[in-house]
Design a protein around this nucleic acid. Structure first.
Length: 521
RNA sequence: GUCCCCGUCGUCUAGUGGUUAGGACACCGGCCUUUCACGCCGGCAGCGCGGGUUCGAUUCCCGCCGGGGAUGCCA
């Protein structure tokens, strides 16, 4: 049975790089018909775990990455929170102590520090002298008489090599002599991550440890722990990390200000900020950050787009396949095709996936997707959901590709405002309505014709406008732009005739009339 | 410092002991067009450097350089 896991710390944030790691674990498990476990690494959490976990779990749910065992769902190898497994770690430490794979160390921090500094000064790797190692009860008692406290350290081998066949990187060898005697239990009796991790992976029968490459050099010590405890080793696969846009540094949520200097990253962030402003979302909130999944959820990305993009960040099928649905991903995924080098996060490529997935949505599905944004912006409060949905379906149909993320619906807020409350883009109003000569008469003449038009549809409107331009001997551009500003207040928008049809005759006439009054006034 | 990992267009990547080094995103130009968006056509652009091995290296080996990680009583 293939079993993989993802073990987030309850930090309150779901990092896009973490999602990629979780995704690969999830895909690997699903591909092999195995199980995916969500364990919580809260070994040293002081904060409210439930609260800090919510954004993470919500993020996974939103993305459709489901887990078979772990937080919330339970399972036969629980508990799945490290904070509830402390007794297991303590007993593992006891066994390591007993077998001689670990020892109590009574060195004071400054004594260790001095050794470390000396090693550094001599430009050699730091190896602890074990001068304060206590292996018998007498030795312990002796040190304790000196009021020294102890930590438990691993008694690492000092010769030979640790061989490891990484499923992504191939055959690797680490010399044991490079490994120091890592602490596995603090002086206050609590255990450290590496010990907890190995014990949990074993107890939870994790067959494949798939994690970020920053853990690669931690693997020998974990192998040592596992072997000393008599565990069967899992397979290891170390994924390259996700890097900053345009660089090879690891992507970090703390460097937002720096990333905003990147044009593409800034464009993406700005796009989100525009939506956020319309729905009253605080962009100063530190979760409003394209490095975090929440950002995408809030402004209306599609989970499939994000997942597909992330899949291609470090994995490829061949030289052309890019768009893969969930089922295809699951059947085609393999660790062999994971890349070794880090991959930079590319905001524009992510956007391209988003656009591609939006195009596949029907008008009905799109209407459903954008509705919450209209509500959040406080628009269309007079319409019930059903009425609004069908109105939205007409708008998104006409808008077509222009709505890239759900929040973009708010670019077309003019459909929801009262005719006498329409706001005009000042520059557009001046250029298209106030400045051209005879605009009042032109609009007046057009309004007269519109009034008598039977069937206010796109084809009829188009024919009417064309006839109008012929009769008035003007070019179509002379009326179209003016009309768009009069009807929507904006210089850009989708097809004019579609706009008119959706607005309907009465609203069109009311808006033209108002525009004329504005020009006069 | 020491150890480990990594290195193909700006970015994500495919690939090979002999290829015009392929695709995608971005970018640039053009077409379409009532604006914007879409779409279509075209273009720019890459094997980090230096040694080997070889008839021939982007591909194999070594060195260097660059990037990253580890070196914590962090995870």
């Amino acid at each position: 049975m293939i079993r993989t896991r993802f073990a987030p710390s309850p930090t309150g944030f779901l990092h896009i790089g973490g999602v990629r790691t979780a995704l690969f674990n999830w895909l690997f498990a699903r591909h092999h018909g195995g199980r995916f476990v969500l364990r919580i690494d809260d070994t040293d959490q002081e904060r409210n775990v439930a609260e800090a976990l919510r954004p993470i779990l919500d993020g996974f749910r939103w993305l459709g990455i489901d887990w078979d065992e772990g937080e919330e769902v339970g399972g036969e190898y629980g508990p799945y929170r490290q904070s509830e497994r402390l007794d297991r770690y303590r007993s593992a430490v006891g066994r390591l102590l007993e077998s001689g794979a670990a020892y109590r160390d009574y060195a004071r921090p400054e004594e260790i520090g001095a050794e470390r500094d000396a090693a550094r000064a001599e430009k050699r790797h730091f190896i602890y002298s074990r001068a304060w190692m206590a292996e018998t009860e007498e030795e312990c008692a002796q040190y304790e008489a000196q009021e020294r406290s102890n930590v438990v350290r691993l008694k690492m081998p000092r010769d030979g090599v640790c061989e490891l066949n990484d499923l992504v990187r191939g055959e690797l060898a680490f010399s044991w002599a490079q490994e120091m005697d890592h602490v596995i239990q603090r002086s206050d009796g609590t255990c450290l991550y590496h010990l907890a991790n190995v014990v949990d992976d074993h107890d939870m029968k994790i067959s494949h440890v798939i994690r970020a490459e920053e853990h690669l050099s931690n693997t020998p010590r974990q192998i040592f722990i596992a072997r000393s405890l008599g565990y069967e080793l899992p397979e290891y696969a170390h994924l390259p990390y996700v890097a900053e846009p345009g660089s090879k540094n690891k992507l970090s949520k703390r460097k937002l200000v720096k990333y905003l200097k990147n044009r593409d990253f800034s464009t993406l962030n700005g796009h989100g900020a525009r939506v956020a402003a319309r729905i009253g979302l605080k962009t100063s909130d530190d979760t409003f950050n394209p490095v975090l999944v929440e950002f995408y959820e809030r402004i209306g990305f599609l989970p499939d787009a994000i997942i597909n993009y992330l899949l291609l960040l470090g994995w490829s099928l061949d030289d052309r396949t890019e768009y893969l649905g969930r089922d295809d991903m699951v059947t085609l995924f393999s660790l062999e095709r994971v890349n070794k080098a880090p991959a930079s996060f590319d905001p524009m490529k992510l956007m391209a996936f988003q656009e591609r997935y939006m195009k596949e949505l029907s008008a009905e599905a799109m209407a459903k997707l954008v509705l919450p944004y209209v509500r959040s912006a406080g628009l269309a409060s007079d319409l019930g959901d059903d009425a609004l949905l069908s109105f939205l379906a007409r708008i998104v149909e006409a808008a077509g590709d222009r709505i890239k993320i759900a929040g973009d619906i708010l670019d077309y807020d003019d459909f929801f405002v009262a005719d006498d409350a329409l706001a005009y883009d000042e520059k557009a109003f001046r250029k298209r309505l106030r400045k051209p000569n005879g605009m009042i008469d032109l609009l007046g003449g057009l309004a007269e014709r519109l009034e008598t038009l039977e069937g206010f549809g796109v084809a009829a409107l188009e024919a009417l406008i064309h006839r109008f331009t012929e009769d008035e001997e003007i070019k179509i551009g002379q009326i179209v732009h003016a009309l768009r500003v009069a009807l929507t207040g904006k210089a850009v928008g989708f097809g004019l005739f579609e706009t008119m049809e959706i607005l309907g005759k009465d609203r069109c006439l009311a808006r033209i009339e108002r525009a004329v009054r504005q020009i006069e006034g």
